[in-house]
Design a binder for these strands. Structure first.
Lengths: 230, 230
DNA sequence: GTCTATAACGAGATAGAC
DNA sequence: GTCTATCTCGTTATAGAC
C-alpha cells in the first residue's frame, strides 16, 4: 500500500518535472507569452486535458516556472556565498553578484522570465516572493555583517528618505541603519541593471571586457552601500 | 502634379501612422511576441496583404516601433535637458534621468519593448542604434561639460579596465578620461536597472517613496561618475 | 507607379462532438 | 482520449482600380 502510494507520488513528481522541462524549452523558443499548455502536452505525447491534473491553468505552470527560476538563481548565489563565507563582506558581496551574473548568462530565458518584461495578463501571486528574496537576503546579510563588525561606513542619507529608510529597516533590514537600507535597495536594482543590459544586448559594441567590467561595477556598488575595501 | 504627389505622400504617412498606432495598442495588450500583422490589418479594416506596402514584414514593423520608442524617449530626455541647459552638469544629469523614468512610467509597454526581454526570433538591425544612443549621448554630454569646466572629479579606475576604458573613449566618449567613460557606462546601465525594477514590479513592498528614492539614486550615480555636488 | 483586394500556401492553434 | 472542422498566422502571387 505505502509502496503503491510511493510509486504514484514518484510518478507524479517525474511527470511534473517533465512538464516543466518541456515548458522551459518552449519558453526559450517562443517566449513566456506564447507558452501553451496544449503544445507542452503534444510534445510530451499527452493529451492537453491530462496536464490539468498537474497544473490547474497556464498561469499556475508559469508561476511554477518562475518560482523554480528564483530558486535556481537563489541556490547558485547561496552556493557562491558558501564558498567564501570566511572572506570579508565585500568579497562575499562580489561573489554573490558574480553568481547572479553567471546564472543569468547560463539561463537567459529563465532570467528574462523573472527579471524581464512582465507577461501580459499574468500577475505573479504572493507565493513567489519567498524565492524571489533569496539573493536580496544574501546582499543584506553582507551589509549586516559589516555593520556588526564595525567595518561598515554609513553612506549619507537624503533628508527626504529618512522615513522611507526607517520603514525599509523595519520591513526587511532589521538592525541596519536606514541609510544602509536605502543604499542596499538602490545597489540591488543597479546590479540587475548591469546584468540585464549585458544579457539583453545593450552592451553590444559598448562593453567588451565584460567579466572585469562587471566585477569592478559591483565592487563600486558595494562601496556605495558602505562595505569596506579590504 | 506636385499636389497629387503631396496628397499621396500624406496619405501614405497617415496610413503608416495608423498601422503603428494600432500595433502599439496590440503591443500593450498582448506583448511584442504576439504582435500580428493580420490582427492589425483586421482592426484597421484593411486586408493583411495591403500592409506589406508599408512594412515588408512583421519584423520591419517591429523595428519601426522600436525606433519610434527610442526616439520618443530620446525626445523626452532632450526636452528635459533643454529645460535646464543653464544648470550645472549634476542637475542636468538628474533631469535627464528623471525624464527617462517619467517617459517609462508613461509608456510602459514601449519601454518593455526596448529595454525588456528580447523578442524571441527577432534581432534588431543596425538601424536602431542611432535612436537608441540619444539618452546616452546626453549623459555623456553632462560629463564632458563637467570635465571641460574643471568640476569633474575623475573616479578611480581598476588596472584591468584601462585598455577597455581607452577603447570606450575612442569609440564614443571622445575627450573624456577612460575612468569616466567606464563609470559612465556602469551608471547608464544602473539607471535602467532602477527604472526597470520600478516598472516591472520589483519595488512592490520594497520602495514606496519612489520619486525621492529615484532622484537620490541617480544623484549618487552622477557622483560616481565624478560630477560635482553643487 | 501606387495602392488594395482576392486567393492561396503551409503551418499551427482551438473548440467541441464523439 | 481521439478526431475533425474551423480558426489563426506570415507570406506570396496575381489581378485590377486609381
Amino acid at each position: 500500500m505505502s509502496t503503491t502510494q510511493g510509486a504514484r507520488a514518484r510518478a507524479r513528481i517525474e511527470v511534473t518535472a517533465a512538464i516543466k522541462d518541456e515548458a522551459r524549452r518552449q519558453l526559450a523558443a517562443e517566449g513566456a507569452s506564447k507558452l501553451s499548455l496544449r503544445a507542452v502536452a503534444r510534445e510530451l505525447g499527452m493529451v492537453s486535458s491530462a496536464l490539468y491534473r498537474y497544473f490547474p491553468s497556464r498561469d499556475d505552470l508559469l508561476t511554477a516556472l518562475i518560482i523554480d527560476a528564483y530558486d535556481s538563481l537563489g541556490e547558485a548565489a547561496e552556493a557562491a556565498h558558501s564558498g567564501v563565507v570566511d572572506a570579508g563582506p565585500l568579497r562575499r558581496w562580489v561573489a554573490v553578484c558574480e553568481a547572479v551574473r553567471g546564472w543569468a548568462l547560463g539561463h537567459p530565458h529563465e532570467y528574462a522570465l523573472i527579471y524581464g518584461s512582465p507577461v501580459p495578463g499574468y500577475v505573479a501571486p504572493e507565493t513567489t516572493v519567498e524565492s524571489a528574496a533569496r539573493v536580496a537576503l544574501l546582499l543584506i546579510g553582507t551589509a549586516r555583517d559589516a555593520y556588526r563588525d564595525g567595518s561598515l561606513t554609513e553612506p549619507p542619507l537624503a533628508a527626504g528618505l529618512r522615513v522611507e529608510g526607517e520603514r525599509m529597516v523595519a520591513d526587511f533590514a532589521d538592525d541596519l541603519p536606514p541609510a544602509v537600507a536605502v543604499a542596499l535597495v538602490s545597489a540591488w536594482a543597479e546590479l540587475y541593471g548591469l546584468v540585464s543590459f549585458e544579457l539583453f544586448g545593450q552592451f553590444r559594441r559598448v562593453v567588451e571586457e565584460r567579466d572585469v567590467f562587471f566585477r569592478e561595477a559591483v565592487r563600486r556598488l558595494a562601496l556605495g552601500v558602505g562595505l569596506a575595501d579590504v
